[in-house]
Design a protein around this nucleic acid. Structure first.
Length: 472
RNA sequence: GUGCCUAUGGUGUAACGGUUAGCACAUCAGUUUGUGGUACUGAUAGCGAGGGUUCGACUCCCUCUAGGCACCCCA
């Protein structure tokens, strides 16, 4: 309806029938459909404006993974629900309210992965990797799904990159994983600090928890509803409560480190020593806990150094040791450790720092055509330039030379190649220097070589490798 | 999931309980036939959705949806 009232008067006002009068398409009864095709809440498109940053993250991660001999694995997005229920743990928010669980057409309960460590462990067991030389080191990247309430840096579909190391319980493994994560941030130009803690084995944690609960029970009346709930459901979480009262109470509360058995303590101390050795800045945070059930011993987070964790979503990644996970899934008892980083949070941090690499190298040459004969030649010429490694832009869809030069200008190319009817017949082409406006006519067969040479002349710009970093 | 704030063309914004919702940028076309950057002309395009209140709502109220912030949680 809204469309129609505008169409009518326009047709009347419009020019003489130089162009055939358009038959009015009757779309008046069409409801406004666009809204029903809107993105699902918490889902989003990552457009080319962001792809430069994403590429940077992906490239950095990959080169570090290769340097540290981690093997790439791609794990499925859909798994049996049970895999996650078992490992992440009932009682966690991830399982209880955030997981996309549904029954598939074969009537099986499946879930879109909320994280990938469980899948990695499943793969480790399923493919008999315990019979390979240990540790088995793998890394992955891909989308994860959690039905959480969206916020900046938090989406329902989000991307993680993860590193997992199976089969070795030495503290050096924990330390090296932390180093790897730290290096990724360093290479990206981000300043992060490592927050670290140990939550020991399941056994010593149980003992500690009993003590912790007992302590807070005494002060139950002072606690907020949230913290009361935590006390009951997931007492460890009370440690990172933001309530003023609770924080004060925490000063007198039992500390997990005091409850670690000797072996756990020793393990943790060694991890810290290694970190000191490699000069990774870390902060011991006795209140750091993680939300997944499978963690044991070392737990850590990578936090943006600038805002010291005060700002939301400043935790860019985290991980820890999970010695019981493989066994829990039916494998032989196998120690393991890993971490995951949140790609959109990293991307966000990069953006905040003005790190905005171009998505692809900017072309320095533009091809302008006049007429179909010229277009045909252009199409072929394109291949020649591509084989020579010179990116070239065009606007085949435009007809006037003016419009094409306009585009070339906006792209900021150095040279425009102009090919009209005459040049096609003569087998020549015009090279126009966009800055000076100078033009020369050259043999079309030699144009690739000539342009390449010219580009190299221009302040040593390498036509192939150039990918400048723009700061916003 | 809870609380608070927000919602105008692609982007950034203006206005008002009452005529055709204004501006800038961007986009497209053109300013005589094959030459860009400036200037000019024109075009496309918007009140997130649905209900109410009112003679009349983009403007007030409600619901929904979406975004942001804090909590929850976590990457």
């Amino acid at each position: 309806m809204p469309g129609k009232k505008k169409v009518a008067p326009k047709a009347v006002v419009s020019k003489p029938p130089s162009k055939p009068v358009e038959v009015k398409k009757d779309e008046s009864d069409e409801p406004k459909l666009s809204k029903s095709y809107d993105l699902l809440r918490g889902f989003r498109d990552i457009l080319s404006e962001d792809q430069g940053r994403w590429n940077l993250i992906r490239d950095t991660v990959r080169s570090i993974a290769e340097a540290y001999s981690f093997d790439r694995v791609d794990l499925p997005i859909l798994e049996r629900s049970e895999l996650f229920n078992r490992t992440i743990g009932k009682g966690t928010d991830i399982i209880d309210k955030e997981m996309y669980t549904f029954t598939d057409p074969s009537n099986r309960s499946v879930a879109m992965r909320p994280e990938a460590t469980a899948s990695a462990a499943r793969a480790y067991i399923g493919h008999g990797m315990l019979d390979r030389p240990q540790p088995v080191k793998m890394w992955y990247t891909g989308p994860m799904f959690r039905h959480d309430r969206p916020q900046a840096g938090r989406y329902r579909q989000f991307y993680q990159v993860g590193f997992e190391s199976f089969g070795v319980d030495e503290p050096i493994v924990d330390a090296q994983l932390i180093v790897i994560g730290y290096k990724i941030f360093k290479d990206l130009g981000l300043d992060v600090k490592v927050q670290i803690n140990s939550i020991g084995t399941t056994e010593c944690r149980q003992a500690y928890l009993a003590e912790l609960v007992a302590y807070f029970r005494q002060h139950r009346s002072k606690l907020s509803d949230d913290d009361k709930r935590r006390l009951q459901k997931n007492p460890l979480r009370i440690l990172d409560s933001k309530e003023e009262v609770t924080r004060e109470l925490l000063d007198g509360a039992p500390q997990i480190l005091d409850w670690l058995d000797d072996k756990s303590k020793e393990h943790f101390m060694k991890v810290l020593e290694f970190l000191e050795e490699v000069e990774v800045p870390f902060v011991l945070n006795p209140y750091l806990v993680r939300g997944l059930d499978y963690y044991t011993h070392t737990v850590f987070e990578f936090v943006l150094a600038d805002d010291e964790g005060t700002k939301a979503q400043s935790a860019l990644g985290g991980g820890g040791r999970y010695d019981g996970l493989v066994e829990l899934l039916g494998g032989r008892p196998t120690p393991a450790c890993g971490f995951a980083l949140g790609m959109e949070r990293i991307s966000r941090a990069l953006e905040a720092k003005g790190i905005n690499p171009l998505e692809r190298p900017k072309p320095h040459v533009f091809f302008a055509q006049l007429g179909d004969a010229s277009r045909r030649v252009g199409l072929k010429l394109f291949e020649d330039f591509r084989n020579a490694g010179v990116p070239i832009a065009e606007a085949f869809g435009k007809n006037s030379l003016k419009a094409q030069l306009d585009v070339a200008n906006k792209l900021g190319v150095q040279f425009t190649l102009i090919l009209g009817q005459k040049e096609v017949l003569d087998e020549t082409i015009i090279i126009r220097d966009m800055e000076s406006g100078a033009q020369e006519i050259v043999d079309v067969k030699k144009v690739v070589g000539l342009v390449k040479k010219k580009l190299r002349h221009e302040e040593g710009v390498d036509p192939i490798m150039q990918s400048p970093v723009e700061t916003a």
